[in-house]
Nucleic acid binder design. Structure first.
Length: 545
DNA sequence: TCCTCTCCCACTTTTGAACTGG
DNA sequence: ACCAGTTCAAAAGTGGGAGAGG
């Protein structure tokens, strides 16, 4: 909670100097949020203050009115133009630039949970060749999806709007068994972070008919995960902009600094530099890559809320100067909303109901090839040694969570740690019943694992105003629809844990968040299962089996 | 041989406890 | 006793190189 340590993460961010916010995010209507003109950083910087005005405004503020502006958008754009890379390590590495947003339009008195997930942007594996990112094959199965819940969550709209909301402590890892709740990614794959805002206050608890969430997506925050930087331009951008990397800021030539560090009298040319200089001598002559090629070439179909549908070339066909890009930042605004009658109005790239037959999974305009998620593994429960603000993960396989496998009454199979990647492939959708629960404190850094939905590949379609480089999804859940998903328990069945692991009783908010995640995930991909991540524990006895 | 990944290094920033003075 | 400001050591975060492994 925000009160637990003098400064919240968002406060830290707020104090940090930095360029003004970029542009406003998608707005409140099922329109592609063309409203950016006039909605400047200054406007965003003036959230409603306390008082009567706030109260008056609150009455009309809905989840759809929430606007999100990406902080340091220009910096993000710089990286994006060069082809953002994010280091992933076994221990977890922060993102840089860090994900910070300015939120407006919230009801100041309503509590919200802000969380981030990072989903594959496509189903390709990449390699850095000839100074550009190229498709190198089919993506590996997505890692267990996790959510990073902002540690201030839940907090009132006033809190979120008072300052920047920073997710700078979010860490990325390539450790499939990561016990710390970091977001697990595959190296050399392209990802897209998404911000979710979930309404969660006493009167609108998760699972109530009023439960709502929205999703905001900034195409310029997409990146390729790497274990070491491939593009020297990215390295330089990181060194220049990340204060922690100051040590690598040489007088002019960081390589000279490396040479000094190594007590060598000659500059050491790194492998990456050498590679690039050998392969792409033009790079040194053109330090500024400039606008990417293929800006208007999207990778796949996409569909935005007005129903426009575009056919776009395959990524393999693209000369990727960096990586397939959406850098024109056209607004990708998808809308998901429940109608009053409970039917789901879904304006998403994957529009089919989750109740449809599995054969519909591979909707062609969404998955170019048979979706790899069929083979994806579900993460078993595990506990971890965590800080008070970190979490332990609970999970179950899809069918178990869903209660649709017909084994509801069977005792859960013993779970060993090495089941992390050895549980049965996901075959059906997770369905949960969630009762309306009173609001309770929501565990921070709760993470949930889903079958990672691949985003509909974002395009740089210029049909969207560049000032609205933002993708939003709104959802309004109804209780009846929650129920229609199935009768299973509202929390994954208890499974055996590694010795030494403790488990806290599931919070109703985990159910709620899970529900959120479920619906959210389903809104983008029909292949979904869940993994809870909450509570405290230890990994001392964790074994690889 | 090439590519990817892990470990370790030196460096900087951040954090928080300890201390000091009003 | 309390609070605010300062100091300083430890922790955390960085990119690069070496080397292992596939």
């Amino acid at each position: 909670m925000l009160q637990d340590k003098g400064l919240s993460e968002s406060e830290e961010a707020f104090r940090a100097p930095g360029p003004a916010l970029g542009e406003a995010s998608a707005a409140n209507a099922p329109e592609p949020a063309l409203a950016a003109p006039g909605l400047s950083g200054a406007a965003l910087g003036s959230p409603p203050g306390p008082g009567a005005d706030v109260a008056a405004a609150a009455a009309e503020q809905t989840i759809e009115n929430i606007k999100v502006g990406l902080h340091e958008k220009e910096l993000w754009k710089k990286f994006h133009e060069a082809g953002t890379e994010m280091i992933i390590t076994k221990a977890g590495r922060r993102m840089f630039p860090s994900y910070k947003v300015k939120v407006t339009g919230m009801n100041p008195k309503t509590k919200y949970i802000l969380l981030i997930d990072i989903v594959p942007a496509d189903d390709h594996r990449y390699k850095f060749c000839d100074n550009k990112w190229m498709v190198a094959g089919k993506a590996e199965p997505a890692m267990p999806g996790r959510l990073y819940v902002h540690p201030d969550s839940p907090a009132t709209g006033a809190h979120w709007m008072r300052q920047l909301v920073s997710f700078q402590k979010l860490k990325l890892t390539n450790n499939h068994l990561d016990p710390f709740g970091h977001i697990i990614l595959n190296s050399m794959h392209k990802y897209q972070p998404r911000l979710h805002i979930v309404k969660a206050d006493e009167n609108n608890a998760f699972g109530s008919k009023n439960t709502a969430f929205c999703t905001h997506l900034f195409p310029e925050t997409s990146f390729i995960s790497v274990t070491s930087y491939q593009n020297h331009k990215i390295t330089q951008l990181k060194i220049e902009n990340n204060p922690f990397a100051k040590g690598f800021r040489g007088s002019d030539d960081s390589d000279l600094r490396v040479a000094r560090l190594q007590s060598k009298e000659y500059p050491v040319i790194s492998k990456s530099i050498m590679r690039q200089r050998l392969i792409s001598p033009q790079l040194s002559a053109t330090p500024d890559v400039g606008p990417l090629l293929g800006t208007h070439q999207a990778l796949q179909h996409y569909q935005h809320e007005n129903g426009a549908h575009s056919q776009l070339p395959e990524p393999q066909d693209l000369p990727l100067s960096t990586f397939p890009t959406q850098r024109d930042s056209g607004l990708f605004y998808h809308c998901l909303k429940r109608r009053a009658d409970g039917t789901r109005h879904l304006d998403l790239p994957c529009k089919r109901s989750y109740l449809e037959a599995p054969s519909s999974v591979g909707e062609d305009h969404y998955f170019r090839s048979p979706p790899p998620y069929d083979q994806q593994m579900l993460s078993p429960s595990y506990c971890s040694e965590v800080t008070p603000r970190e979490a332990c993960m609970y999970s179950g396989s899809g069918p178990e969570i869903a209660g649709v496998s017909g084994v509801d009454d069977l005792p859960p199979p013993p779970l060993s740690c090495n089941m992390w990647t050895s549980v049965s492939p996901y075959t059906s959708y997770s369905v949960q019943t969630m009762e309306t629960v009173p609001y309770q404190p929501f565990p921070t850094h709760f993470t949930a694992t889903t079958m990672m939905p691949r985003l509909p590949t974002l395009s740089a379609q210029s049909s969207q105003p560049p000032g609205n480089a933002h993708f939003s999804v709104y959802n309004q859940l109804s209780q009846s629809q929650v129920r229609e998903r199935g009768p299973s328990a509202s929390f994954p069945r208890e499974r055996s844990l590694p010795p030494g692991c403790e488990r806290k009783p599931p919070s109703p908010h985990l159910n709620a968040a899970n529900e959120f995640l479920y619906s959210q995930t389903f809104s983008l991909s029909r292949e979904s299962s869940l993994q809870y991540h909450s509570g405290m524990g230890t990994v001392e006895n964790w074994t690889d089996g």
